[in-house]
Computed example of a mutant assay.
Amino acid sequence: MVCQEDVPTSEPVECVKVAINPEHPEQTVMIGGNQSIEGKKAICEVLKANLDVFAWKLADMTGVLRTLAEHKLRIKENTAPVRQKKRGQAPERSKFIVEEVQKLVEAGIMREVTYQSWRSNLVLVKKHDGEWRMCVDFTGLNKACPKDCYPLPEIDWKV
């Protein structure tokens, strides 16, 4: 497996696939190949010591209680809800979408809404390894939100 570092180089850096959980050898992480052997061992030890912070499947992802944090979108006044027309999908993509949505519903990340006022299409994007990633097309919602007049500062300004 080859991974690219943030800094462009002439040659890609080889990554090492490591199984850190002995109970689930199929669950792996990638460690950059430019690490020394001692560095790789140290990274693996830190990861093994903190296995409980990783979400290996959707059901492992626990939500933040609404009493602790809740996010609300600011929508421009007098903006009508955007309802995108449903896009058709090829049968194999449609099957993948149904399976992914079912996983999200079972994990409690999504729930069914009968009378939605906003509607955005799902978009499948091919990953570099050939698998699909399910995304949502929020272009209509983004247009309805006011732009920030103050961008986030450059990180070097903060440091």
Rank of each mutant, 00 (worst) to 15 (best):
L104I: 04
F96C: 05
R83Y: 11
K103A: 08
K86P: 01
I97N: 08
Q102C: 08
Q89Y: 15
R119T: 02
W118S: 02
K85A: 15
F96E: 11
V101W: 03
T114K: 12
I97M: 12
M110L: 15
S94L: 15
V101G: 06
A80Q: 09
Q89F: 15
R111S: 04
K76R: 14
R93P: 06
F96P: 01
T114S: 10
F96G: 07
Q84M: 09
R83C: 10
V101D: 04
E99V: 00
R83T: 12
K86H: 11
E99I: 00
V82D: 01
K85L: 14
G108P: 01
V98D: 09
E112T: 00
Q89W: 14
V82G: 00
V105H: 03
V82P: 00
V82I: 07
E92Y: 13
Q102Y: 10
Q116K: 12
T114Y: 11
T79R: 14
K76H: 09
M110T: 00
L104G: 05
R111G: 00
I97Q: 08
E92V: 12
Y115P: 00
V82Q: 07
P81I: 02
A90L: 10
Q84I: 02
Q84F: 04
S117D: 08
K76S: 09
Y115A: 03
V113G: 05
K76V: 05
Y115C: 02
Y115V: 00
K86Q: 10
K85Y: 15
V105C: 06
E77T: 03
V113T: 05
E99G: 03
A90C: 06
I97T: 10
Y115L: 02
T79V: 12
E92D: 13
E92I: 12
M110Q: 06
R87E: 04
